[in-house]
Simulated scan of single mutants.
Amino acid sequence: MGSAQADTKASGEFARDMRYIPTRITADGRDGYPVEADRYRLIIARACPWANRAAIVRRLLGLEPVLSMGICGPVHDERSWTFDLDPSGVDPVLRIPRLRDAYLARDPDYPLGITVPAIVDVPSGQVVTNDFPTMTIDLSTEWVRYHRDGAPDLYPESLREEIDEVSELVFTDVNNGVYRCGFASSQGAYEQAYDRLFARLDWLEDRLTRRRYLVGDTITEADVRLFTTLVRFDAVYHGHFKCNRNKLTEMPALWAYTRDLFQTPGFGDTIDFAQIKEHYYVVHTGINPTQIVPKGPDPSGWLTPHHRAELGGRPFGEGTPPGPPPRDERVPSLK
C-alpha cells in the first residue's frame, strides 16, 4: 500500500496501521459520493500489491470506460507517491504531481500515510477513499450498472461468508505476513511471522491441490487478494523480506495456481515485474541500503503450462474474459 501506514511494537513486530478514509462510493450515494461514470479516478502503482487488487477487479468487471486510472511511478519519497511516469511528472486528469495533493485537498491536516489505491473525485480533486479492502468489494457490488456484459460475479452472495473467512486468513498470515517478516525488528518477531506465513502457505498448498480456486469453482475476490502477494513472492518477498523457506516455484499447487491466474486476462496483464522490483529494493533503504535491484528471477516461467483446467472450474462462471487493456495501460510483455 506504498507509504505503508505502519509502526513497530516494542517486541519488534511490524504493525500495520489500518486507519483509512472510510468514505464509500455507493449506488445510493449515502456518503455523498454516488456511483457515476467519468467522475472518479482510481490511482494505483504497479508496484503495490494492494493497489494491484483494484486494478485487477476494475479490469475483470470492465470498468475502464467509466473509471479512469492514474498510475504512479514505482519509487516515492517520504512525502508521497508521484506521477513521474506522466509527461512533466503531472497526472493528466488531476493536474497534480503528487498524490499527496489530493489527500490535502480533502483534509489540509491529513495525518496518515499517503497510500495507494486511492479513488479521487475529479471535480473537487479530493481523495474519496483509500480503504483498499472495501474498495474492491464496492466495485463488485455498488458499480453493477456499469459492469461490462459478461462480467464475473467476484463476490457472489452465497459464498460471501466463506470468501470473507478465507480472505481474513490470507490477509493476516500471507498478504500482511510477508511484511511482518520483512519489517520485523527483532529475531523473535521475524521468526514468529515466518512460521505463520509458511504454515498458511502449506494450508493453501493443500487446499489448492484439490480445487482450482480458493472458494467455489470460479474466480472470486479471495483469489484476487491472494494472487497479488503470490505473484510478487519470488521476485521480492523470498529474498528482500527473508521469506526464504522455499520459493513459490517450489510449491507445486501454488505455483500452478498463480500461473493459471497470471495467464487469465485481467491478472498477468496488470503485472510489471520491473516496477515491482524497483519499488521494494529502492524505497526500502532500511532493508536494502545499497538500493541494488536484483536482475532475476527469470520471468519466462510464468507463461508455461499449468494444467489447472484438469481440476474443473470455470474462471468467469457464466461470464466471459475481459478484452485487452486500454493501450495506455498495457504492461511490458514477458520475453
Score class of each variant (00 low, 15 high):
S3K: 13
G12P: 00
G12Q: 00
I21E: 06
R24Y: 06
G29P: 05
R30Q: 07
D31G: 07
P34W: 07
P34E: 05
A37W: 00
R46S: 06
V57W: 01
M69G: 03
P74E: 03
E78P: 06
R79G: 15
G89Q: 02
G89F: 00
D91W: 00
P92E: 04
V93Y: 00
A102G: 10
G113A: 14
V116E: 08
V116H: 06
V120Q: 07
Q126P: 13
V127D: 08
D131T: 01
M135G: 09
I137W: 11
I137K: 12
S140Q: 14
T141K: 14
A151C: 10
V166E: 10
F171S: 13
T172L: 06
V174M: 02
V178S: 11
R180P: 00
Q187H: 04
E191V: 04
F198N: 10
L201M: 14
L208W: 04
L214C: 05
T218H: 05
T218Y: 01
I219H: 02
E221M: 13
T228R: 10
T228M: 04
F233L: 08
A235G: 15
H240P: 03
K242S: 06
R245V: 10
N246E: 15
N246L: 09
K247F: 15
T249M: 14
T249S: 15
E250Q: 15
M251R: 15
M251Y: 07
R259K: 11
F262L: 06
T264A: 12
F267Y: 14
T270M: 07
T270V: 11
I271P: 03
F273N: 07
A274D: 14
Q275T: 08
I276C: 10
I276D: 09
E278K: 14
Y281V: 07
V282M: 07
V283G: 10
H284M: 05
Q291G: 14
P297M: 08
P299N: 08
L303E: 11
H307R: 08
E318K: 12
P322Q: 14
P324K: 11
R327F: 12
